[in-house]
Nucleic acid binder design. Structure first.
Length: 243
DNA sequence: AACTATCGCAACCGCGCGGAT
DNA sequence: GATCCGCGCGGTTGCGATAGT
């Protein structure tokens, strides 16, 4: 597209963290002018008396000031949903956010990158494909590589066939927690300390449910789940999470 | 107590899409 | 059809908070 000028090139515009005063002005404006009634975001700084670009105002509102935002930790259900939706939609955070009322795409993206992604990698699961890493195509960082080198042996079997299940079927993530034998919540393994699975090459096979063409094989009402239900505790090497 | 490393979140940046002209 | 414009999205960065040494 031709020659579009940057939105924030105006001199004298503030950047960086918002002050309480700026927040107040923006909230006041949006409270009085309502939802998109005869204005566009580009006009907001002028109308609200802010020295910010419109884009910055929009981001501040949508990611932080909106009254319907939910703050705080993600619940097990939300984490479960994020993984499920990410398997189906990929990094389309805004689409994922639609399914999580009160969470913004930025929230979800941050949580994915700082919590879920790391955990999956350490479990030997590629967070992009939701499948096990191929042993010779590790995308893990140096730390994980060391762990893999120290693991007993590379996978000796091909991936276990992938299975698709509905929400109501047995093989959902709750089974993962159940094999643990304790009272932890299903996603406690993601929410607690950084346990390390004994590398992608351990004896156990983590079985992924995700088939190749996820979007076409999954109805809107079904969920894709990591399938652990048929595997034992030792097989999954989940003991590491007990540390 | 001081320093360093790591984490987590808010905010920025650049690009693409879609509607308007 | 070409261009402009506003918006939204996804990736990345900056920095304060916290943990570890």
């Amino acid at each position: 597209m031709g020659g579009r000028k940057p939105c924030c090139d105006e001199v004298g515009l503030r950047k960086g963290p918002w002050t309480a005063e700026e927040d107040g002005k923006l909230v006041d404006f949006l409270r009085t002018r309502g939802d998109r009634g005869g204005w566009c975001w580009r006009d907001v700084p002028k109308l609200a008396g802010l020295r910010r670009c419109g884009k910055s105002c929009r981001l501040r509102w949508t990611n932080y000031l909106r009254p319907d935002l939910k703050r705080g930790l993600f619940t097990e259900e939300e984490i479960q949903l994020v993984i499920d939706l990410h398997a189906r939609l990929g990094n389309r955070w805004s689409k994922i956010a639609i399914e999580l009322p009160g969470r913004t795409d930025n929230d979800i993206k941050n949580y994915w990158n700082t919590h879920i992604k790391r955990k999956l990698i350490r479990m030997g699961i590629d967070p992009n494909t939701h499948r096990r890493f191929e042993f010779n195509q590790q995308k893990v960082n140096e730390e994980e590589k060391v762990l893999l080198v120290n693991s007993p042996k590379p996978p000796s079997q091909p991936e276990v066939p992938l299975v698709l299940q509905n929400d109501t079927s047995a093989g959902n993530l709750n089974n993962l927690a159940d094999v643990d034998g304790d009272d932890d919540q299903p996603w406690s393994f993601l929410m607690e300390n950084d346990g390390v699975v004994g590398g992608g090459g351990g004896a156990g096979e983590l079985t992924m449910l995700l088939s190749g063409d996820i979007s076409s094989s999954c109805s809107s009402s079904s969920s894709l789940w990591l399938k652990y239900g048929d595997l034992g505790y030792e097989d999954l090497e989940l003991g590491c999470f007990d540390d």
